[in-house]
Amino acid sequence: MMCIVPRMSIGHALLGLLEGGPRHGYDLKRAYDERFGQDRPLHYGQVYSTLSRLLKNGLVTEAGVEAGDGPERKRYAITDAGVTDVERWLSTPEKPEPYLQNTLYAKVVLALLSGRSAAEVLDTQRSAHLNTMRELTRRKTDGDLADQLICDFALFHLEADLRWLELTAARVDQLAVEVMR
């Protein structure tokens, strides 16, 4: 299964969760997994390395330590700087990134240059995309509203890729002439 929360900024997500009140690292991991982890839960290592970075940058602070050793004893609280950082993150749009197009474009061109079938490359990709879309659709059908929204996000992106595949498939002959020049 694909990652349906691509390049999620874990630091910002944890900060956002801490705005609800101080938590232990373990609590944070659970809250994150429940809301955003889907089939990719965080590793404890990720949680603690992220928290120590946030601590170093003054975005969180330690809010009490229980008796005993180890990071799981510490509670973390968000600082004013942390809140400002969350606000900045929320108000900055994500970079509209081209996802797979570059790789797929390279495959199509290389297929044409080597006399292989570019249409086949595109067909194979379409079929893989549709299979993923089927899985997401099934999951959406069984899921609650949060699942539906997250799956829809991925579905619309995959659909955009597919449109590009279609358009490219329709222009493969034209492209062949150009790359052979």
């Binding site: 995309h129 879309m133 089927r134």
Partner: peptide, 21 residues
């Protein structure tokens, strides 16, 4: 012709220029 609609299917058959795959 909509992929999100096709995603409700078990499999797809593609038609191009009057020929199907």
């Amino acid at each position: 012709h909509e992929p999100r609609v096709a995603a409700y299917s078990d499999r797809e058959v593609v038609v191009r220029d009057g020929r199907s795959r």
